[in-house]
Nucleic acid binder design. Structure first.
Lengths: 331, 331
DNA sequence: TTGTACGCGTTATCAA
DNA sequence: TTGATAACGCGTACAA
């Protein structure tokens, strides 16, 4: 049997409301009674019920987070950032996996609403439109991290994918490459398109023609596999370098090269995107665009706190950074 | 303003209890009224409050999960398994990070108790003792995954670390190695000791002396760093092979070898432990002991469900499997 | 089949 | 400073 403030009240010969006040350091309570009751609560092993508290205060100190996959190192980092800031602010976070399924995503959001979370954070959402209406209908703020449905939404944090694509491509161009391939990810429509646009912009600026044969765009739920398939697709076009949608795609592509006896970087230079933890431990170590994942999670959660505080935080677009390692070389 | 069953009741000219029954498909309700009320609830945008429901039913359909770090790929996999099974069973999971800090871990547990979670799952706990008392004091079942404080506890799932250590070492012995080092992790007391014991057992069985100079045992919150430091420690003892506590340690150690110009596997064979996702993409690809991480999460959550169902599940020890790749070769 | 009334554990508003 | 009492939203005996 779990004990309540009523039990303590009975034991202390006071009213339940007095116990309540004593336990929340209410100003209007006697110093001595407060001490007495707090001590009593402790010895009786009292554990306050957040459920009951939430019912009256209409606040759960709870955040709902939906991700497309938790085993993705990028997601794990974001989660780390979100949880750390949330924890420090006294919030607990619900984690759930949409498995990149739009219907499931919607169901999870509804579950969170039933649970009366104070806010919801969604990573790589492809259902943004849904949220514009949900947002107004109920009062639960929804914050999007790297949302993937193109368009404008109220609360978002993402990285500068276009600039990232451009920097990556410029790096390759600077090394003398002119046949630069791109292996993209259709299931990430917005960031994929932005990276592709950056790639195109860099080519155009350098007066290098866009060659469709060395651009692969496919949808896959396995990044590594995408890399292998993408390589097979573009090889006939004889690229001397490839810019990959993300690191895991690049890693898959590297494996494909190994199987085919293609030397990296001598025969093919490769640039990834993300700078996941292991990128620097690969051999050759992967040249890539670093995205500040943990920070992204922290910022998203901080935006959430600001929102809950009644402020109106600006949407954020974080910078990316080129990290040159061993997979790129002069042509 | 969020609407409740009272609002619906007023609108439908029925009692709130009727609405309640209609919404939960209660048997004792008129088919027609049920349909009418359900439709009305939908048009009114009714979202039931899990908070209120929990208060009366004394059940939150909530699981608290505490991990030592979410960016660790092993943790992410476990989490994935736990969440998937939980979600299918209708539970939501709270994720929180203890940062491998015992005090923080205790605080998180208390938070979960305040939130009245139905069960708690802890990964790599070093405070098991705490839980034996907590367990009896309150009724919240606590399930331990790879607990690290030696001893026996009520509900645990782990892998057969000793056998893993033995298999790894036997593999190296079978390749002709006799000076086999070990780089262990003191902050994981139980599994580290078990792997070490397996290592010793294999040596003993092959009549190979235990050489303290090539055994490194240090505490580090950075696996990669541990690998580098461990390598430095044991090098003077001239090992021809090393068994590492885990893959990330092995990766750090491999990097150290590279910096020193030590060829892998020709000058030094390496075996890891875990088989994290990237192990097979490293060059050379890492020979390691595979642990079924996702499955481990699934099993832990399934045990939890059984427990909540009133059953008394057995503790589980999962098998490990040797995966031979490129970092080990004949001496 | 439907309605009434109470309980769940806490906070908050009034009085005392 | 403390005590009654009414909320909060829902489930559920019990009565109608």
């Amino acid at each position: 049997m779990t004990i309540s403030i009523y039990d303590i009240a009975k034991e202390a010969n006071v009213a339940p409301s007095t116990v309540s006040r004593a336990l929340q350091n209410h100003p209007r309570i006697g110093t001595e009674t407060k001490a007495r009751i707090q001590a009593l609560a402790k010895t009786m092993g009292y554990v306050p019920s957040a459920v009951a508290k939430s019912l009256t205060t209409n606040k759960t100190w709870t955040i709902g987070m939906v991700v497309t996959a938790v085993a993705d190192p990028v997601v794990a980092d974001i989660l780390d950032g979100v949880e750390a800031v949330a924890q420090d602010a006294g919030y607990s976070v619900f984690l759930s996996n949409s498995r990149d399924d739009a219907e499931r995503e919607a169901a999870l959001i509804e579950t969170f609403q039933r649970r009366r979370v104070d806010a919801i954070i969604v990573h790589a959402s492809r259902r943004n439109k849904l949220y514009n209406s949900k947002l107004t209908q109920h009062q639960v703020p929804i914050i999007l991290i790297e949302h993937q449905e193109p368009g404008n939404y109220q609360h978002t944090v993402s990285t500068d994918s276009k600039r990232g694509g451009q920097l990556a491509t410029e790096h390759l161009i600077g090394l003398g490459h002119r046949r630069i391939g791109f292996v993209g990810a259709l299931e990430r429509p917005r960031s994929n398109e932005e990276r592709l646009n950056g790639y195109k912009a860099a080519l155009e600026q350098a007066n290098i023609p866009f060659i469709p044969e060395i651009v692969s765009l496919l949808e896959s739920d396995d990044d590594f596999e995408r890399g292998q398939l993408g390589l097979a697709e573009i090889l006939a076009g004889e690229p001397t370098a490839v810019f990959c949608y993300n690191d895991r795609t690049a890693i898959g592509l590297m494996k494909g090269c190994e199987q085919r006896g293609i030397a990296i970087p001598d025969q093919l230079s490769i640039v990834g995107f993300d700078d996941i933890g292991n990128a620097s431990y690969l051999r050759p170590a992967l040249t890539t665009m670093r995205q500040p994942w943990i920070q992204m999670g922290e910022i998203a959660m901080q935006m959430t706190l600001d929102l809950l505080d009644g402020q109106t935080p600006e949407n954020r677009i974080l910078p990316v950074e080129l990290i040159v390692r061993q997979t790129t070389t002069k042509r």
